[in-house]
Amino acid sequence: MEYTQLGRTGLKVSRLVLGTMNFGPQTDEPHSHAIMDAALDAGINFFDTANVYGWGENKGRTESIIGSWFAKGGGRREKVVLATKVYGNMGAEGEPWPNEDKLSALNIRRAVDASLKRLQTDHIDLYQFHHIDRSTPFEEIWQAIDVLVGQGKILYVGSSNFPGYKIAQANEIAARRDGTIGLVSEQCLYNLAERRAEMEVIPAAQEYGLGVIPWSPLHGGLLGGIIKKQVEGGRRASGRAADALKDPALRSRIQSYEDLLDKHHLEPGETALAWLLTRPGVTGPIVGPRTTEQLESALRAVELELPESLLTDLDELFPGTGPSPEAFAW
Protein backbone atom coordinates (compact mmCIF):
# COMPACT_ATOMS: atom_id res chain seq x y z
CA MET A 1 0.00 0.00 0.00
CA GLU A 2 1.11 3.55 -0.74
CA TYR A 3 0.63 6.37 1.74
CA THR A 4 0.40 10.13 1.48
CA GLN A 5 -0.19 13.04 3.80
CA LEU A 6 -3.74 14.29 4.19
CA GLY A 7 -3.67 17.76 2.70
CA ARG A 8 -1.42 20.15 4.57
CA THR A 9 -1.39 18.00 7.72
CA GLY A 10 1.30 15.63 8.93
CA LEU A 11 -1.23 12.79 9.02
CA LYS A 12 -0.27 9.82 6.83
CA VAL A 13 -3.14 7.94 5.17
CA SER A 14 -3.45 5.15 2.60
CA ARG A 15 -4.11 5.99 -1.06
CA LEU A 16 -7.33 3.97 -0.84
CA VAL A 17 -10.03 4.85 1.69
CA LEU A 18 -12.29 2.10 3.01
CA GLY A 19 -15.88 3.28 2.69
CA THR A 20 -18.31 1.57 5.03
CA MET A 21 -21.72 2.70 3.76
CA ASN A 22 -22.67 -0.88 2.83
CA PHE A 23 -21.95 -2.20 6.33
CA GLY A 24 -25.36 -3.00 7.78
CA PRO A 25 -27.69 -2.33 4.83
CA GLN A 26 -25.98 -4.76 2.41
CA THR A 27 -23.20 -6.48 4.35
CA ASP A 28 -23.87 -8.12 7.71
CA GLU A 29 -21.68 -7.59 10.77
CA PRO A 30 -19.46 -10.71 10.47
CA HIS A 31 -18.70 -10.01 6.80
CA SER A 32 -18.16 -6.30 7.54
CA HIS A 33 -15.60 -7.28 10.18
CA ALA A 34 -13.90 -9.61 7.68
CA ILE A 35 -13.65 -6.79 5.12
CA MET A 36 -12.13 -4.43 7.70
CA ASP A 37 -9.62 -7.07 8.76
CA ALA A 38 -8.66 -7.66 5.12
CA ALA A 39 -8.33 -3.93 4.50
CA LEU A 40 -6.06 -3.49 7.50
CA ASP A 41 -3.97 -6.51 6.47
CA ALA A 42 -3.57 -4.90 3.03
CA GLY A 43 -2.31 -1.67 4.58
CA ILE A 44 -5.46 0.45 4.28
CA ASN A 45 -5.45 2.63 7.39
CA PHE A 46 -8.07 5.24 6.39
CA PHE A 47 -11.69 4.25 7.20
CA ASP A 48 -14.65 6.50 6.35
CA THR A 49 -18.19 6.39 7.73
CA ALA A 50 -21.03 8.72 8.76
CA ASN A 51 -23.45 8.88 11.66
CA VAL A 52 -26.45 8.37 9.34
CA TYR A 53 -25.12 5.23 7.64
CA GLY A 54 -27.44 2.31 8.20
CA TRP A 55 -30.19 4.66 7.06
CA GLY A 56 -33.81 4.96 8.12
CA GLU A 57 -34.65 3.32 11.39
CA ASN A 58 -31.16 1.72 11.37
CA LYS A 59 -29.13 4.94 11.08
CA GLY A 60 -26.10 4.67 13.30
CA ARG A 61 -25.84 0.94 12.63
CA THR A 62 -22.70 1.26 10.51
CA GLU A 63 -20.83 3.13 13.24
CA SER A 64 -21.91 0.44 15.71
CA ILE A 65 -20.51 -2.30 13.46
CA ILE A 66 -17.17 -0.47 13.30
CA GLY A 67 -17.30 -0.02 17.07
CA SER A 68 -17.78 -3.73 17.70
CA TRP A 69 -14.83 -4.40 15.38
CA PHE A 70 -12.64 -1.97 17.34
CA ALA A 71 -13.73 -3.70 20.56
CA LYS A 72 -12.04 -6.90 19.38
CA GLY A 73 -8.72 -5.23 20.15
CA GLY A 74 -5.53 -6.36 18.48
CA GLY A 75 -4.51 -2.78 17.74
CA ARG A 76 -7.44 -2.26 15.40
CA ARG A 77 -8.35 1.19 16.65
CA GLU A 78 -4.75 2.31 17.01
CA LYS A 79 -3.95 1.42 13.38
CA VAL A 80 -6.98 3.18 11.86
CA VAL A 81 -7.38 6.83 10.88
CA LEU A 82 -11.09 7.09 11.61
CA ALA A 83 -13.33 9.52 9.75
CA THR A 84 -17.04 10.04 10.33
CA LYS A 85 -19.55 12.77 9.46
CA VAL A 86 -22.24 14.99 10.95
CA TYR A 87 -25.22 16.75 9.35
CA GLY A 88 -28.04 14.27 8.68
CA ASN A 89 -31.02 14.02 11.00
CA MET A 90 -30.47 11.41 13.70
CA GLY A 91 -33.87 11.75 15.37
CA ALA A 92 -36.35 8.91 15.59
CA GLU A 93 -37.99 8.00 12.29
CA GLY A 94 -41.34 9.74 11.88
CA GLU A 95 -40.80 11.85 15.01
CA PRO A 96 -38.93 14.98 13.89
CA TRP A 97 -37.60 17.19 16.65
CA PRO A 98 -35.56 20.42 16.42
CA ASN A 99 -31.76 20.42 16.71
CA GLU A 100 -31.15 16.82 15.70
CA ASP A 101 -29.46 17.64 12.42
CA LYS A 102 -27.19 20.10 10.59
CA LEU A 103 -24.28 22.03 12.11
CA SER A 104 -25.50 24.01 15.09
CA ALA A 105 -23.13 23.97 18.06
CA LEU A 106 -25.75 21.99 19.97
CA ASN A 107 -26.12 19.28 17.35
CA ILE A 108 -22.35 19.01 16.75
CA ARG A 109 -21.78 18.45 20.46
CA ARG A 110 -24.52 15.84 20.74
CA ALA A 111 -23.56 14.12 17.47
CA VAL A 112 -19.91 13.73 18.43
CA ASP A 113 -20.76 12.14 21.76
CA ALA A 114 -23.27 9.78 20.11
CA SER A 115 -20.77 8.75 17.42
CA LEU A 116 -18.04 8.13 19.99
CA LYS A 117 -20.39 5.85 21.93
CA ARG A 118 -21.38 3.85 18.84
CA LEU A 119 -17.78 3.66 17.61
CA GLN A 120 -16.52 2.58 21.06
CA THR A 121 -13.62 5.00 20.95
CA ASP A 122 -12.54 8.14 22.78
CA HIS A 123 -11.75 10.26 19.72
CA ILE A 124 -12.47 10.75 16.02
CA ASP A 125 -9.46 11.46 13.83
CA LEU A 126 -11.29 13.30 11.04
CA TYR A 127 -14.71 14.82 11.73
CA GLN A 128 -16.43 15.84 8.50
CA PHE A 129 -19.33 18.17 7.77
CA HIS A 130 -21.52 16.03 5.50
CA HIS A 131 -23.09 19.04 3.78
CA ILE A 132 -23.14 22.81 3.99
CA ASP A 133 -25.50 24.34 6.55
CA ARG A 134 -26.87 27.58 5.13
CA SER A 135 -28.44 28.59 8.44
CA THR A 136 -25.43 28.25 10.77
CA PRO A 137 -22.50 30.72 10.59
CA PHE A 138 -19.00 29.34 10.53
CA GLU A 139 -18.13 31.39 13.61
CA GLU A 140 -20.53 29.16 15.58
CA ILE A 141 -19.34 25.98 13.89
CA TRP A 142 -15.66 26.69 14.58
CA GLN A 143 -16.39 27.65 18.19
CA ALA A 144 -18.01 24.23 18.70
CA ILE A 145 -15.13 22.47 16.95
CA ASP A 146 -12.49 24.29 18.99
CA VAL A 147 -14.13 23.06 22.19
CA LEU A 148 -14.15 19.46 20.93
CA VAL A 149 -10.54 19.65 19.80
CA GLY A 150 -9.62 21.02 23.22
CA GLN A 151 -11.43 18.11 24.83
CA GLY A 152 -9.51 15.65 22.63
CA LYS A 153 -12.69 14.26 21.07
CA ILE A 154 -11.70 15.17 17.52
CA LEU A 155 -8.33 15.89 15.90
CA TYR A 156 -8.96 17.20 12.38
CA VAL A 157 -11.97 18.58 10.52
CA GLY A 158 -13.02 18.06 6.91
CA SER A 159 -15.90 18.91 4.62
CA SER A 160 -18.02 16.89 2.22
CA ASN A 161 -20.07 18.10 -0.73
CA PHE A 162 -18.87 21.70 -0.24
CA PRO A 163 -18.71 24.10 -3.19
CA GLY A 164 -15.46 25.94 -3.71
CA TYR A 165 -16.69 29.22 -2.21
CA LYS A 166 -17.74 27.48 1.03
CA ILE A 167 -14.30 25.88 1.37
CA ALA A 168 -12.80 29.35 1.04
CA GLN A 169 -15.29 30.93 3.42
CA ALA A 170 -14.82 28.23 6.06
CA ASN A 171 -11.04 28.49 6.05
CA GLU A 172 -10.91 32.29 5.88
CA ILE A 173 -13.08 32.48 8.99
CA ALA A 174 -10.99 29.78 10.66
CA ALA A 175 -7.83 31.76 9.88
CA ARG A 176 -9.19 34.69 11.91
CA ARG A 177 -9.55 32.48 14.99
CA ASP A 178 -6.49 31.87 17.12
CA GLY A 179 -5.43 28.22 16.89
CA THR A 180 -8.22 27.00 14.59
CA ILE A 181 -6.70 24.82 11.86
CA GLY A 182 -9.75 24.88 9.56
CA LEU A 183 -10.73 22.29 6.99
CA VAL A 184 -8.02 19.80 6.02
CA SER A 185 -9.98 17.66 3.54
CA GLU A 186 -12.92 17.73 1.14
CA GLN A 187 -14.89 14.63 0.22
CA CYS A 188 -16.57 15.22 -3.12
CA LEU A 189 -18.23 13.43 -6.01
CA TYR A 190 -15.44 12.95 -8.54
CA ASN A 191 -14.73 10.32 -11.18
CA LEU A 192 -14.06 9.96 -14.90
CA ALA A 193 -17.71 10.47 -15.79
CA GLU A 194 -18.32 13.31 -13.32
CA ARG A 195 -15.53 15.87 -13.40
CA ARG A 196 -17.31 19.10 -12.43
CA ALA A 197 -15.30 19.16 -9.20
CA GLU A 198 -12.33 20.22 -11.35
CA MET A 199 -14.01 23.58 -12.01
CA GLU A 200 -13.72 25.08 -8.53
CA VAL A 201 -13.88 22.50 -5.73
CA ILE A 202 -10.52 20.85 -6.36
CA PRO A 203 -8.70 24.15 -7.12
CA ALA A 204 -10.09 25.61 -3.88
CA ALA A 205 -9.02 22.51 -1.97
CA GLN A 206 -5.51 22.75 -3.39
CA GLU A 207 -5.29 26.48 -2.66
CA TYR A 208 -6.21 25.94 1.00
CA GLY A 209 -4.25 22.72 1.48
CA LEU A 210 -7.13 20.27 1.67
CA GLY A 211 -6.75 16.66 0.66
CA VAL A 212 -9.41 15.58 -1.86
CA ILE A 213 -11.26 12.34 -1.10
CA PRO A 214 -13.47 11.34 -4.07
CA TRP A 215 -16.65 9.42 -3.37
CA SER A 216 -18.48 7.24 -5.92
CA PRO A 217 -15.27 6.63 -7.91
CA LEU A 218 -17.12 4.19 -10.18
CA HIS A 219 -20.07 6.58 -10.61
CA GLY A 220 -22.63 4.23 -9.14
CA GLY A 221 -21.17 1.24 -11.00
CA LEU A 222 -21.21 2.79 -14.47
CA LEU A 223 -17.41 2.67 -14.67
CA GLY A 224 -17.13 -0.86 -13.31
CA GLY A 225 -17.71 -2.80 -16.52
CA ILE A 226 -21.46 -2.71 -16.21
CA ILE A 227 -22.35 -3.41 -19.86
CA LYS A 228 -19.97 -6.35 -20.08
CA LYS A 229 -21.47 -7.78 -16.90
CA GLN A 230 -24.93 -7.49 -18.38
CA VAL A 231 -23.88 -9.25 -21.57
CA GLU A 232 -22.21 -12.03 -19.59
CA GLY A 233 -25.27 -12.46 -17.40
CA GLY A 234 -23.71 -10.99 -14.30
CA ARG A 235 -24.99 -8.30 -11.95
CA ARG A 236 -27.44 -6.07 -13.78
CA ALA A 237 -27.55 -2.32 -13.52
CA SER A 238 -30.03 -0.94 -11.03
CA GLY A 239 -31.07 2.40 -9.62
CA ARG A 240 -29.27 5.45 -10.96
CA ALA A 241 -26.91 3.35 -13.09
CA ALA A 242 -29.82 1.66 -14.88
CA ASP A 243 -31.51 5.01 -15.47
CA ALA A 244 -28.27 6.51 -16.80
CA LEU A 245 -27.80 3.69 -19.32
CA LYS A 246 -31.17 4.54 -20.84
CA ASP A 247 -29.43 7.59 -22.34
CA PRO A 248 -28.12 6.33 -25.74
CA ALA A 249 -25.25 8.82 -25.81
CA LEU A 250 -24.02 7.89 -22.33
CA ARG A 251 -24.43 4.17 -23.00
CA SER A 252 -22.34 4.56 -26.16
CA ARG A 253 -19.64 6.37 -24.19
CA ILE A 254 -19.56 3.68 -21.50
CA GLN A 255 -19.36 1.01 -24.20
CA SER A 256 -16.42 2.83 -25.80
CA TYR A 257 -14.76 3.02 -22.38
CA GLU A 258 -15.10 -0.72 -21.85
CA ASP A 259 -13.90 -1.47 -25.39
CA LEU A 260 -10.85 0.77 -24.91
CA LEU A 261 -9.85 -0.96 -21.68
CA ASP A 262 -10.46 -4.37 -23.19
CA LYS A 263 -7.79 -3.54 -25.78
CA HIS A 264 -5.39 -2.71 -22.95
CA HIS A 265 -6.40 -5.87 -21.02
CA LEU A 266 -7.49 -3.75 -18.07
CA GLU A 267 -10.49 -4.06 -15.78
CA PRO A 268 -12.77 -0.99 -15.94
CA GLY A 269 -13.31 -0.60 -12.19
CA GLU A 270 -9.62 -0.89 -11.36
CA THR A 271 -8.75 1.57 -14.13
CA ALA A 272 -11.29 4.14 -12.88
CA LEU A 273 -9.69 4.01 -9.44
CA ALA A 274 -6.16 4.16 -10.86
CA TRP A 275 -7.14 7.21 -12.94
CA LEU A 276 -8.22 9.07 -9.80
CA LEU A 277 -4.86 8.28 -8.21
CA THR A 278 -3.18 10.21 -11.06
CA ARG A 279 -5.26 13.36 -10.48
CA PRO A 280 -3.71 16.44 -8.84
CA GLY A 281 -4.83 17.02 -5.28
CA VAL A 282 -6.41 13.59 -4.77
CA THR A 283 -5.50 11.89 -1.50
CA GLY A 284 -7.35 8.68 -2.30
CA PRO A 285 -10.75 7.52 -3.54
CA ILE A 286 -13.31 5.89 -1.27
CA VAL A 287 -14.00 2.27 -2.11
CA GLY A 288 -17.12 0.70 -0.62
CA PRO A 289 -16.81 -3.07 -1.02
CA ARG A 290 -19.71 -5.35 -0.17
CA THR A 291 -17.39 -8.38 -0.24
CA THR A 292 -13.71 -9.16 0.30
CA GLU A 293 -13.47 -10.01 -3.41
CA GLN A 294 -14.48 -6.46 -4.32
CA LEU A 295 -11.86 -5.16 -1.90
CA GLU A 296 -9.18 -7.28 -3.58
CA SER A 297 -10.12 -5.79 -6.96
CA ALA A 298 -9.83 -2.27 -5.59
CA LEU A 299 -6.42 -3.00 -4.11
CA ARG A 300 -5.07 -3.93 -7.53
CA ALA A 301 -5.74 -0.37 -8.69
CA VAL A 302 -2.91 0.95 -6.49
CA GLU A 303 -0.43 -1.15 -8.46
CA LEU A 304 -1.64 -0.01 -11.89
CA GLU A 305 0.43 2.42 -13.90
CA LEU A 306 -1.67 3.83 -16.71
CA PRO A 307 0.29 4.74 -19.86
CA GLU A 308 0.12 8.34 -21.07
CA SER A 309 -1.56 7.23 -24.29
CA LEU A 310 -4.40 5.67 -22.31
CA LEU A 311 -4.76 8.75 -20.10
CA THR A 312 -5.07 10.84 -23.26
CA ASP A 313 -7.73 8.51 -24.64
CA LEU A 314 -9.66 8.64 -21.36
CA ASP A 315 -9.56 12.43 -21.45
CA GLU A 316 -11.04 12.35 -24.94
CA LEU A 317 -13.83 10.01 -23.83
CA PHE A 318 -14.57 11.92 -20.62
CA PRO A 319 -13.22 15.44 -21.20
CA GLY A 320 -14.77 17.16 -18.21
CA THR A 321 -15.37 20.88 -18.08
CA GLY A 322 -11.92 22.18 -17.23
CA PRO A 323 -11.14 24.76 -14.52
CA SER A 324 -13.09 27.95 -14.05
CA PRO A 325 -13.42 30.63 -15.31
CA GLU A 326 -12.30 29.14 -18.62
CA ALA A 327 -14.98 26.45 -18.30
CA PHE A 328 -17.68 29.07 -18.74
CA ALA A 329 -15.87 32.22 -19.86
CA TRP A 330 -12.40 32.93 -21.27
Results as ranks from 00 to 15, higher is better:
residue 137 P to M: 05
residue 198 E to K: 10
residue 304 L to W: 12
residue 222 L to A: 10
residue 170 A to T: 10
residue 314 L to C: 08
residue 201 V to E: 10
residue 23 F to G: 04
residue 294 Q to V: 03
residue 134 R to G: 07
residue 293 E to N: 06
residue 100 E to L: 10
residue 258 E to G: 02
residue 150 G to A: 12
residue 148 L to T: 07
residue 23 F to L: 08
residue 140 E to C: 09
residue 52 V to M: 09
residue 207 E to C: 05
residue 315 D to E: 14
residue 274 A to F: 08
residue 33 H to C: 10
residue 277 L to R: 04
residue 309 S to Q: 11
residue 10 G to W: 12
residue 117 K to T: 12
residue 45 N to W: 06
residue 141 I to Q: 07
residue 27 T to C: 05
residue 18 L to G: 08
residue 186 E to W: 07
residue 206 Q to C: 04
residue 271 T to F: 02
residue 285 P to W: 02
residue 102 K to V: 00
residue 58 N to D: 15
residue 90 M to P: 12
residue 221 G to H: 11
residue 272 A to P: 06
residue 279 R to Q: 12
residue 201 V to S: 07
residue 250 L to D: 15
residue 190 Y to D: 11
residue 226 I to M: 00
residue 79 K to H: 15
residue 241 A to P: 04
residue 171 N to F: 11
residue 46 F to W: 09
residue 124 I to K: 00
residue 313 D to Y: 01
residue 281 G to Y: 01
residue 171 N to G: 04
residue 131 H to M: 13
residue 299 L to D: 07
residue 167 I to D: 02
residue 66 I to M: 14
residue 29 E to H: 10
residue 234 G to N: 07
residue 197 A to C: 09
residue 126 L to K: 03
residue 1 M to Q: 13
residue 172 E to R: 15
residue 273 L to W: 05
residue 278 T to Y: 11
residue 51 N to K: 08
residue 107 N to T: 06
residue 43 G to F: 11
residue 234 G to A: 03
residue 219 H to V: 03
residue 237 A to N: 08
residue 98 P to L: 09
residue 149 V to I: 14
residue 313 D to M: 07
residue 16 L to Y: 14
residue 108 I to S: 00
residue 282 V to A: 13
residue 170 A to P: 15
residue 94 G to D: 13
residue 142 W to S: 10
residue 297 S to Q: 14
residue 192 L to S: 07
residue 278 T to I: 13
residue 104 S to W: 01
residue 12 K to D: 03
residue 323 P to S: 09
residue 16 L to C: 14
residue 88 G to E: 09
residue 164 G to H: 03
residue 27 T to N: 04
residue 286 I to N: 03
residue 269 G to F: 01
residue 167 I to T: 02
residue 36 M to N: 04
residue 7 G to S: 11
residue 62 T to P: 00
residue 125 D to V: 01
residue 327 A to P: 08
residue 271 T to V: 11
residue 204 A to R: 00
residue 33 H to Y: 11
residue 143 Q to I: 07
residue 326 E to Q: 09
residue 200 E to I: 00
residue 283 T to W: 00
residue 137 P to C: 05
residue 76 R to N: 03
residue 62 T to V: 06
residue 55 W to N: 05
residue 154 I to Y: 05
residue 232 E to W: 02
residue 213 I to G: 04
residue 27 T to S: 00
residue 226 I to S: 01
residue 10 G to Y: 12
residue 173 I to R: 11
residue 197 A to V: 09
residue 39 A to K: 06
residue 218 L to P: 00
residue 197 A to N: 07
